[in-house]
Design a protein around this nucleic acid. Structure first.
Length: 947
RNA sequence: GCCGAAAUGGCGGAACUGGUAGACGCGCUGGACUCAAAAUCCAGUGACCCUAAAAGUCGUGUGGGUUCGACUCCCACUUUCGGCACCA
């Protein structure tokens, strides 16, 4: 028998055409059917193309979307591109290719790859964030944020005009609004202000506002750097020093929503791990602001502490180097070191724990209760951006304060008597207060409340709930982002553009070098910058702007009157299932929730949370193979590569790991991974700059040509990101060409649970390919003709089918997709054993498989003379009676250890089981005549005999 | 440093809510078919003990604990991965 070959290339081509022309994945308008919105986190289209890691989530969500569609839901399953961003801009600087061009190309490539995988996206709803039709509404939301403030009393955003009204009537009296700093003024004060003063004052309240914040400034490159452009405290490009520089920046007042972002999470179907991450990011804590008067000069230092109970353990105060009082406090001789500190101390992205540094300002403050002198230090570890930029140092009960005190020999006072349990550290919030006057004898938790109360009584501070979360920086000194729709008038006031002027389009620039003084490249587009009203803002919006609301645009992507129609928003409401990587666990999800809540306050969206259920998919990792390059002195020294086996003979700092293209390596991802002579030759052809290099293993060495036959050099294997930079990207197109898209989809699912990370490994794919062949062969007779039998299926055949339907239906609903593939394999194996070719079994199985393998099942559906597309047919349901077995396999254990398997009829009663089990010869021999102490019987499950 | 996740045969993984550890697949071994190979099919496959079978012992990163019973729950630790804003 010659089995009929499944021609995946031809079938896939035909299916794609059919689906496209019939528009079977288009979600037209609204419907009476129940809605289901399945969303993927849209990708940033990088130059490396889609790799096999991306589709893991896309295939999962596609399976759910297809199942829901077959179940009769009106399904919204869209895709788009997060198209603004730094990589395209960096690429443009390197190659001269404009970001618009490279982004366009990358998007086209991504879309084609996504289509090849057979994902059922409605491409007519595609959203691309860098298109003016889209970012017009990103700008529009920004303007709304600008025009609103957060009213704490009303617990929602309100128009800034309302606030102005109140200022006119009663000044700041009775206004409870989220702000940068609390201000007090009268209606009279307000009336006497100039327009510029009013403008500045309102910035204190707007949800989109301007403030000074510190950026990573690189003098040598003349530009501001993102955190990931900095490595080891210097710029990744060129290794130049980076310093903190204050700059006027746009920011969003996300902190106004802290409490709601925290509270509303309760109702969401997200993993606890993810919720915990968000909670920690919001970081709500109850603490206390405490004032320390300076010994001389009349100023006071306000500190914030979550541990006011330790107030009697204070042995120093510490200010951030940028603290406004720092300069004033420092004697002339110290000014120089202060300035140096401001520049270098908070060297960004430098997470290596250094020994604490700082210096004594020479001044003292007075303790609010004891009036004792407390030295004021300037310390690098205190951050200006958090709290008040000043702390009270309690080295007895804070680890960082302790490290600082030890370094500078400051007294360490103990004010808590800890309970003696193991593992308690000095920061533990447990124990009894000592050496603390009125707090003595109190438990820590009570002492915190008491301390706050006492501090308030003596008027030296007040209790305060703070959130760790900070307002979000919204300015980028970059070209490839949404222009901020603001013009500055002659007084320097920020004037928002009128909504009718949107979109404010990004002008075309040919050179993307930074502007003068670290300004955005946009500042060089003079004709664009200068308008009759004044100069335009040249900063652009950050990457997260466009992605903070794209899920709403999919609901009504071509609307030109609003970001989406009221009807569409009312119908689609929110995302029912959102799948994406953990890397967005806090950033993107926090900003999106914030924007959504803001739009809810304004009455534009009907829900206060955008994503009902969220699942994080794991990463598919790649294998990174590298060889060790020995760094040698001298300009003419030959490059020397050494085998991984002898790397430990050299000091680490003399070795550089050079990633090697995965294709050159033999036995990759194993201890035997190595380059043979052939591999070395390929490597040198690929990296000509290493021509003439010498290679050395544990026995011998030399340059290519001089190396002995059979020479190998071991490479270093590790598991890590799949990335262009490690040359280990696997393109799904290659896999699809060889095995077909269905096989690729099923194999990705078969690899393991969706939320787990795992390395990509082609070794198992043959199993899935064989399974599909077996499945396909069931539909053909010995002569190679398509053949289904109309005879009534047997009970056994139906049982096999219905058990599979039940397992797969339930497992898709809880996204356990790897076990679904196993279930299909079991089903096909069993049906083949019965040589089943019945229509009534094989067609429901085909429908059941359609969400996983959309091409082959569509092909079979067509051959079987069924009408229309299988994907618009219905999803099979199981009959519970057909999934049950008539007997039970009881494991019988003695003292918890399985000794026998007992097969009994399901109808047997509990008493019959209890007596029957003791009669079994396999069990009798273990009892040796002694009566059991106890028999534990879980009906339908197991029997355990205790002796 | 902080936060989160994970660890099960040679490999990817399965095990519902504390109830038969290793489903399914890869790989490997043996066999059938073939002149031969590929493909396909059949059988076996955690380790140890044993000629073999039967039976048994050990076994889910490490060390303890709870339980009639632990991959699953609790405590401590190790390693790996992901994220981060040195967060008072």
């Amino acid at each position: 028998m010659n089995p009929v070959e499944y021609e995946h290339i031809a079938v896939e081509q035909a299916c794609k055409q059919f689906w496209n022309s019939a528009g079977i994945y288009r979600t037209d308008g609204l419907s009476d059917k129940p809605k289901y919105y399945v969303l993927d986190m849209f990708p940033y289209p990088s130059g490396a193309g889609l790799h096999v890691g991306h589709p893991l989530g896309y295939i999962s969500s596609d399976i759910v979307a297809r199942k829901r569609r077959m179940e009769g839901y009106h399904v919204l399953h869209p895709m788009g591109f997060d198209a603004f961003g730094l990589p395209a801009e960096q690429y443009a600087i390197q190659t001269g290719i404009h970001p618009a061009v490279s982004t366009r190309q990358n998007i086209d490539r991504y879309r084609e790859q996504l289509v090849n995988i057979g994902l059922s996206f409605d491409w007519s709803r595609e959203v691309i964030t860098c298109q003016p039709e889209y970012y017009r509404w990103t700008q529009w939301i920004f303007l709304q944020l600008f025009h609103h403030y957060y009213d704490i009393a009303a617990n929602r955003a309100l128009p800034i005009a309302k606030l102005v009204e109140r200022f006119e009537q009663g000044g700041s009296q009775g206004v409870h609004a989220s702000c940068s700093e609390p201000l007090r003024f009268s209606a009279e004060d307000w009336k006497n202000m100039t327009s510029k003063e009013r403008d500045e004052l309102l910035m204190n309240y707007r949800l989109a506002f301007r403030r000074i914040s510190h950026v990573n400034w690189c003098e040598a490159l003349g530009t501001v750097l993102a955190n990931d452009e900095i490595k080891d405290g210097v710029s990744e490009r060129g290794g130049h020093p980076v310093e903190k520089k204050p700059m006027m920046q746009w920011a969003l007042r996300i902190t106004a929503y802290s409490e709601r972002l925290l509270h509303d999470m309760e109702s969401l179907d997200w993993s606890e791990a993810l919720k915990t991450m968000q909670r920690n990011w919001i970081g709500k804590s109850r603490g206390c602001a405490i004032f320390f008067d300076l010994e001389v000069g009349g100023e006071r230092i306000e500190v914030y502490s979550t541990r006011p109970d330790t107030i009697f353990g204070v042995s120093f105060l510490a200010l951030a180097p940028e603290h406004p009082l720092a300069e004033q406090l420092c004697a002339d001789g110290l000014m120089h070191s202060l300035q140096e500190y401001c520049k270098l101390a908070n060297s960004p992205a430098d997470r290596e724990r250094k020994s604490p540094s700082g210096f004594f300002s020479g001044k003292y403050a007075l303790h609010p209760f004891t009036n004792e002198r407390v030295p004021v230090w300037i310390a690098e570890y205190v951050l200006i951006e958090y709290g008040t930029g000043a702390i009270m140092g309690v080295p007895g009960h804070d680890l960082r304060d302790e490290a600082f005190a030890k370094k500078f020999a400051l007294p360490i006072l103990k004010v808590i008597d800890f309970p003696g349990h193991a593992g308690a550290d000095i920061e533990e919030k447990a124990g009894v207060m000592v050496n603390s006057r009125f707090l003595d004898g109190l438990e820590v938790s009570n002492a915190i409340d008491r301390a706050i109360a006492e501090i308030e009584v003596v008027g030296r501070g007040y209790g305060k709930t703070v959130y760790k979360m900070r307002d979000a920086n919204f300015s980028r000194q970059r070209y490839w982002g949404e222009p901020i729709p603001v013009v500055y008038n002659d007084k320097g006031c920020a004037m928002p553009l009128d909504e009718s002027k949107l979109p404010l389009e990004l002008p075309h620039l040919t050179s993307l070098e930074p502007g003068r003084g670290g300004k955005s490249p946009l500042s060089r587009a003079e004709e664009w910058v200068q308008t009759s009203q004044g100069d335009r803002e040249t900063d652009t919006m950050p990457g997260y702007a466009g992605s903070s609301w794209y899920f709403l645009r999919y609901m009504d992507p071509h609307n030109t009157n609003s970001f989406a129609s009221k009807e569409a928003l009312a119908y689609w409401r929110d995302v029912d299932l959102y799948i994406g990587g953990t890397e967005h666990a806090v950033g993107h999800l926090m900003y999106s929730r914030f924007w959504h809540k803001f739009l809810f306050d304004l009455g534009y969206v009907p829900t206060f949370e955008p994503f009902k259920k969220l699942v994080n998919q794991g990463m598919i990792q790649g294998v990174i193979e590298s060889i060790y390059l020995l760094k040698q002195e001298g300009a003419n020294a030959n490059n020397l590569f050494i085998s991984a086996t002898i790397a430990d003979r050299y000091p680490v700092e003399q070795l550089a790991k050079i990633p090697v293209h995965l294709d050159f390596v033999e036995d990759a991802n194993s201890p035997a991974a190595h380059l043979s002579l052939e591999g070395i030759e390929k490597f040198l052809r690929w990296r000509p700059e290493f021509a003439g290099s010498h290679f050395l293993n544990e026995h011998e060495g030399g340059a290519l040509g001089g190396l002995p036959p059979g020479f190998t050099i071991k490479t270093h294997s590790e598991i890590g990101k799949m990335s262009k930079r490690y040359h280990n990207v696997v393109n799904p197109d290659d896999v699809i060409r060889e095995y077909g898209a269905d096989c690729f989809r099923m194999y990705e699912m078969f690899l393991g649970p969706i939320e787990q990370s795992k390395p990509w490994d082609m070794h198992g794919i043959d199993g899935v390919a064989k399974f599909l062949k077996k499945y396909f062969a069931m539909f053909f007779d010995e002569g190679g003709h398509f053949h289904l039998v109309d005879a009534e299926p047997t009970r056994e055949e139906l049982q096999i089918l219905h058990q599979c339907i039940k397992k797969v239906s339930q497992d898709i609903d809880c996204l356990s997709l790897n076990t679904c593939v196993s279930a299909f394999m079991i089903c096909v194996n069993e049906l083949r054993r019965l040589q089943c070719s019945k229509r009534g079994v094989l067609l429901p199985l085909t429908q059941l498989m359609a969400p996983f393998a959309p091409f082959i099942t569509e092909h079979i559906w067509g051959l079987s003379d069924s009408k229309g597309s299988i994907h618009l047919s219905c999803y099979p349901r199981w009959d519970e009676a057909l999934t049950e077995r008539s007997e039970v396999h009881y494991p019988v254990s003695i003292n918890g250890k399985k000794r026998h398997e007992w097969i009994v009829s399901k109808s047997l009663g509990e008493e019959e089981l209890r007596t029957g089990v003791l009669e079994l010869p396999e069990i009798k021999k273990w009892l040796s005549g002694v009566a059991p102490k106890k028999i534990i019987l879980v009906p339908g499950r197991m029997i355990n005999i205790v002796v």
